[in-house]
């Protein structure tokens, strides 16, 4: 995973609540057994005039300069709710998005963001509203090391980022390797679980 320490870029406003992952990437666009090249399909239902027709809809924010080059997104509440498809995050990442700011996120989507080097920032709704207006005024800058967000015309904000997620993202650490290093703790937990829940492991020979 690409480490994330500092990032500066254009922030696109998308002030819609409950944007679901079907909207972020429609299921019909997931037709390859691959996680790459999905940026084109991002927000396909809104970004193009018709399904399978690549003519951009000029009314959609990501088709309007400078936001067509956005690397941050300022969104409404419950962003990324719905389907667990990680393709939603892959398409955002492939488009170039590195930071998403919203009052709240769909839980699965939020976890998928961390795993793919996108920083999901949960901020108070009134702060997000101020940031939405700031998108038109210039670049946003996130410093994960200092835990700050600078947006044009606003005082620098202090960010509360989960400590462990933050260090993983800054190191570009592989979550699987990190967890495998916990093997002793996992073995202890497994033994405790097995005594408490003897049916946790299907009996050998049960499988037809």
């Amino acid at each position: 995973m690409e480490p994330f320490i500092r990032h500066e870029g254009i922030a696109a406003p998308l002030p819609i609540d409950n944007v679901d992952t079907d909207a972020i990437i429609p299921s019909r666009e997931m037709s390859r057994v691959s996680r790459r090249g999905l940026g084109r399909a991002l927000f396909a239902n809104w970004r193009y005039l018709a399904p399978y027709d690549p003519t951009p809809d000029p009314d959609f924010v990501l088709n309007q300069p400078p936001f067509d080059a956005a690397t941050l997104l300022v969104a409404g509440s419950n962003f990324g709710c719905g389907s667990s498809r990680e393709h939603a995050v892959w398409s955002l990442a492939d488009f170039g998005i590195r930071v998403i700011i919203a009052p709240s996120f769909g839980a699965i989507f939020e976890s998928n963001c961390w795993g793919n080097g996108i920083l999901p920032l949960r901020l108070r709704a009134d702060v997000v509203a101020q940031l939405l207006t700031a998108t038109a005024k210039g670049l946003f800058a996130v410093d994960l090391e200092a835990c700050t967000l600078a947006a044009p015309g606003l005082e620098t904000l202090h960010l509360e980022v989960p400590a462990r997620r933050r260090s993983d993202l800054m190191a570009g650490a592989d979550a699987i390797d990190q967890t495998l290093a916990e093997h002793a703790a996992i073995a202890t937990a497994r033994a405790r679980r097995n005594s408490l829940i003897p049916w946790a492991v299907p009996k050998i020979g049960d499988t037809p």
């Binding site: 990680e86 998928n112 795993g115 793919n116 699987i176 967890t179």
Partner: peptide
């Protein structure tokens, strides 16, 4: 969960 988190579970049981 998403695919990456699923890989994590498959590889680590956690």
């Amino acid at each position: 969960l998403g695919t990456s988190d699923c890989e994590h579970v498959l590889a680590t049981e956690t």
